[in-house]
Structure formats: C-alpha cells, structure tokens
Deep mutational scan, measured.
Amino acid sequence: YFQGQLNAMAHQIQEMFPQVPYHLVLQDLQLTRSVEITTDNILEGRI
C-alpha cells in the first residue's frame, strides 16, 4: 500500500467517525490495511 491509498482510506473513515483523531485512524490503518477492520476497531473502542 502506498501512503496516498492509506490517506484516502483514513479520510473515508473520518467521514464516518469525525470524532476520532486522523492520526489515530491512519496509525491503525497502517497495521490493518483495511477500512473494515479499522472501522470495527473504532466501534469496539480499541481506538
């Protein structure tokens, strides 16, 4: 994955969860590489 793709995914998640800091979303995406998994992590309070 290149950074631009991760940034696009992070923006997509931020639209759904504007209360979660962008850098935390991006940090999780770098591990998961998945909008779905990061979204689940937010919903389950891991982020």
Rank of each mutant, 00 (worst) to 15 (best):
N41D: 01
L43K: 11
R46F: 06
L6C: 09
P21A: 08
A8Y: 10
I13H: 00
V20I: 14
M16P: 00
Q5L: 14
M16H: 07
T32G: 01
I47C: 05
Q19N: 14
R33G: 15
V35F: 08
I47E: 02
H23L: 09
G4T: 11
T32Q: 01
Q30P: 01
P21E: 12
Q14P: 00
R33K: 13
L43Y: 06
I42F: 03
F2L: 15
I37K: 12
E15I: 13
H23I: 09
V35G: 04
T38N: 01
A10H: 02
A8G: 07
L29N: 00
T32H: 06
Q27K: 09
Q14G: 08
R33F: 13
R46C: 07
L31T: 11
T39C: 10
P18Q: 04
A10R: 02
Y1L: 11
T39D: 01
L26G: 00
M9S: 04
P21I: 07
T32S: 06
D40W: 11
S34N: 07
P18Y: 03
E44W: 08
M9L: 11
T32C: 05
Y1I: 14
L43M: 10
E36H: 09
V20C: 12
Y22N: 12
P21H: 07
S34K: 03
H11N: 09
S34I: 05
P18A: 04
I37V: 11
P18S: 04
T39H: 05
I47D: 01
F2G: 13
L24Q: 08
T38A: 01
Q3A: 09
M16L: 11
E15M: 13
Q19E: 14
T38Y: 00
Q3I: 05
D28V: 05
T39S: 08
A10Y: 04
D40T: 15
P18G: 04
P21Y: 06
L24G: 04
M16Y: 07
A10P: 00
A8P: 03
V25R: 00
Y22C: 15
L29F: 01
D28C: 10
I13R: 00
H11V: 10
Q5G: 09
Q30G: 07
P21C: 12
D28R: 03
